[in-house]
Amino acid sequence: MQLEVSGIGLSYGDTRVLRDVSLVLDSGEQALLLGASGSGKSSLLNVICGLQTPDSGTVTLGDQPVHDGVRKAHIGIIFQTLRLVSALNVRANLLLAQRLANGVQNAAKVDETLEQLGINHRAKARPFELSQGEAQRAAIARALVVSPKLLIADEPTSALDKGNTKVVAEMLIEAARSAGASLLIATHDDRLTSQFGRTLMLENGKVTG
C-alpha cells in the first residue's frame, strides 16, 4: 500500500513544528526519516499514524485516509519506550495486539514471529524482565504479528549500543521485507543511513529528500 502525505502543517501554540510536509512511500519501500531531537519527527509519525490531527494536509494509505480503523488494521508501530503492555508477558502482548487489530488471535503466527526475531525463549517473560535488546525485539514482534502494510518505528535504536543498533536495524529491514510492508524509521542516528536506500531529512519543519 502506498503512503501519501500531502501538505501537512502542525503547530503547538505559536510554534510551527511541521510546514507543508509532503512525502510518498511506495508499497514495500523502506526509508529513513532523519532529524535532530525536537525537529518534529515524532509529531510527523503521530500524524501519519492518525494519532494526531494536523492543522492542514492529508495522509492516505492505499487511497484511504488514515484513521483509527486503518491504523489498527494496517500499521505496525514501534516506539522507543512504550514497547509492551506491562501486565502481560511477551506472548500475551502479541496475542492482544492481534485481537485488537483484527479481532482474532493466531497463536501460530505469534510463535513464528517470536522465533523469527529470536526471542521465542522469552515468550513467557514479563516486560520488566527483558533486556533493552530483547524488549525492542519484542516490540518489533508486536508490530509484525498483525501483518501490517506499513511499519513505522520511532527512534527504535536510541537506547541501544552500536552493535545492537545495527542488528535491530537489519532486523526491521528484514522483517518489513518478509512481511511485504513499507518501512519508515524516524531517528536522529545517522549511523543508520548506510543501511537504507532512501533518507528523508526533516529540518525546520520541512522534509527534503
Binding site: C49, L51, D68, R71, K72, A73, I77, F79, T81, L82, R83, L84, V85, S86, A87, L96, A97, L100, A101, R142
Partner: peptide, 18 residues
C-alpha cells in the same frame, strides 16, 4: 501510573470504550 500502557493499547487499536 499506567498512562503509557493505556496509550499503547489505544495505538494498538483499542477504542476509548474498550
Amino acid at each position: 501510573g499506567r498512562e503509557g500502557d493505556l496509550a499503547l493499547l489505544r495505538v494498538m487499536g483499542a477504542s476509548p470504550i474498550q
